[in-house]
């Protein structure tokens, strides 16, 4: 069963065609990597899959619902309920502790549950850093907090934009191990990356060039 389906997706900014006729299916529980040079349309694709923008043409089917014509308000609800976002720059709220950074996602989703948020931090190995502010955490630890935050509302899809781009080798390994674990648990993961080693961890790699799908490469099982 597909959790995500892109049908003839195009995105046009004035005279610039950022995406052209993208067709892609992502199965439930699949780990997919998206690669491509700068300007290939990766960011636009993340925007559309992450419900932060709408396509100019085509349909986006997420969890069985066509969301391509939804209002911005509805897209916010879809994003909140079905997608967990992880960014290269971590993007923690710097005046909130690690625990509060996780709880803030619960707050905007439904209701903060401190015990559950703490369990999410423990799951990424940061139970003892719950009271620390972002400035007191290393880059790898911050990214793990963001993974905990992305997971806290049980999303259907984890969308990660260069999640290891700012990490050293050790922390990259820790983050990828977490992703492997999530994949084993059946969570769908889409990772946008420049790093072939990260892409190789996925089941398939979609390569974008000039706003089009250039090729889809199956990776090791």
């Amino acid at each position: 069963m597909n959790i995500l389906e892109l049908k003839d997706i195009s995105k046009i900014y004035g005279s610039v065609k950022a995406l052209q006729n993208i067709n892609l299916q992502v199965s439930q529980g699949e780990w997919l990597a998206i690669m491509g040079p700068s300007g290939s349309g990766k960011s636009t694709m993340i925007n559309i899959i992450g419900c932060m923008d709408k396509p100019s043409n085509g349909s986006v089917i997420l969890d069985g619902a066509n969301i391509s014509k939804e209002s911005a308000k509805s897209l916010t609800n879809v994003r909140r309920d079905k997608i967990g976002l992880i960014f290269q720059q971590f993007h923690m709220i710097n005046y909130l502790t690690a625990l509060e950074n996780v709880m803030v996602a619960q707050y905007y989703h439904s209701m903060p549950d401190e015990k559950e948020a703490l369990q999410a931090l423990e799951r990424v190995g940061l139970g003892d850093r719950a009271k620390h502010l972002p400035s007191q955490l290393s880059g790898g630890e911050q990214q793990r907090v963001c993974i905990a935050r992305a997971l806290i509302n049980y999303p259907k899809l984890i969308l990660a934009d260069e999640p290891t781009g700012n990490l050293d080798e050790t922390n990259e390994g820790i983050v990828l191990d977490i992703f492997k674990q999530l994949h084993k648990e059946g969570i769908t993961i889409i990772v946008v990356t420049h790093d072939p080693e990260v892409a190789e961890e996925a089941q398939r790699t979609v390569v974008l060039e000039h706003g089009r799908v250039a090729r889809i490469v199956p990776n090791k099982e």
Binding site: G50, M52, K73, T76, N77, R79, R80, D81, L85, H91, M92, I93, V104, A105, Y108, H109, R149, N153
Partner: peptide, 9 residues
Amino acid sequence: IFRTLGAPR
């Protein structure tokens, strides 16, 4: 960040 976490406007 708040918006990506689902905070409405």
